[in-house]
Simulated scan of single mutants.
Amino acid sequence: MNVYSSAHELASAIKASNEFMDYDKLRKEIEQDPTLNQMISDIQKRQIEIQAKQLSGEEIGQEAMAQMQSMYAMMSSNPKAAEYMQAEARFAIMMKDVYEILSDVVKINI
């Protein structure tokens, strides 16, 4: 068995999955709307900042959490943005599951 061939098969299977196709379709639609694209980008950047602070042991203030909640509420009120975020979450869960399967086999923690 060639590991690289199997990896390419897995990549093709992921690309053909409903999770990826839905996410990719919506991502391309979002990219066509500069305002919506920027709003989602801002939320994602803020989320990464908060996660980085949490990982470094820094406490997240109420103001930062309230800001995130406000951003999510605003985004949730836009049906296309909400649909995109749901598709992104489904794709991320599938990828996490694949990573866990692979890491369990070789006994490493990713």
Rank of each mutant, 00 (worst) to 15 (best):
S12R: 12
M1S: 11
M75E: 04
S77P: 04
Q44W: 01
M21R: 09
I14G: 06
M71R: 06
E83P: 05
P79H: 03
L102R: 05
D22H: 01
I93N: 14
E49T: 07
Q62R: 14
F20V: 14
M68Q: 08
K45I: 08
M95T: 14
S56Q: 15
K45Y: 05
A73T: 12
H8N: 02
D22K: 12
M85E: 03
M39H: 11
D42S: 00
M95G: 00
N37W: 04
Q32L: 10
K96V: 10
R90K: 15
S103G: 00
V106Q: 00
L10V: 12
N18Q: 09
S17A: 09
Y72N: 14
L26N: 07
S17K: 03
M94D: 07
S70P: 00
A92G: 06
E19N: 15
E58P: 11
V105F: 13
M75Q: 12
S70D: 04
A81R: 08
E9Y: 14
I60W: 06
P79A: 08
K53N: 06
G61N: 13
M68H: 05
F91H: 01
D24Y: 03
E88S: 06
K96W: 05
M39T: 11
Q44D: 01
Y84P: 09
I40E: 12
F20W: 07
I60Y: 14
E29Q: 13
I110P: 08
R27C: 00
D97N: 15
M68V: 15
Q51W: 05
E63P: 10
M95A: 06
M1D: 12
N109G: 09
K15V: 08
E63S: 14
M21K: 15
M85A: 03
Q62Y: 03
Y84E: 12
S70N: 15
I93Y: 07
K96P: 03
Q38Y: 01
E9D: 11
F91W: 10
K25W: 04
K15S: 13
I40P: 02
L55R: 12
Q54M: 15
I14W: 14
S6D: 15
P34T: 05
Q67Y: 03
E29D: 01
E59W: 01
A11K: 09
M65T: 08
N2D: 09
H8V: 02
I93K: 09
E83H: 09
M95L: 15
D97S: 07
M68L: 15
I40V: 12
A16H: 02
Q44E: 12
D24V: 10
S17G: 11
M95Y: 09
F91C: 10
A92K: 06
G61Y: 07
I14V: 13
D33R: 00
M39S: 13
F20L: 12
M39K: 11
K107G: 10
G57L: 05
A66F: 13
Q32R: 11
K53D: 05
K107Q: 12
V106T: 08
I101S: 13
S41C: 06
E29Y: 03
E19K: 13
P34C: 02
E88L: 13
E88Q: 13
L10P: 07
S76V: 04
I43N: 13
D97Y: 01
M75A: 14
A87T: 05
L26H: 02
I48T: 15
Q67R: 07
M68N: 08
K53R: 01
K28P: 03
E19C: 07
E59K: 13
A66H: 15
A81W: 04
E88N: 06
I93G: 06
L26V: 03
Q62N: 14
Y84F: 14
N78G: 07
K96M: 11
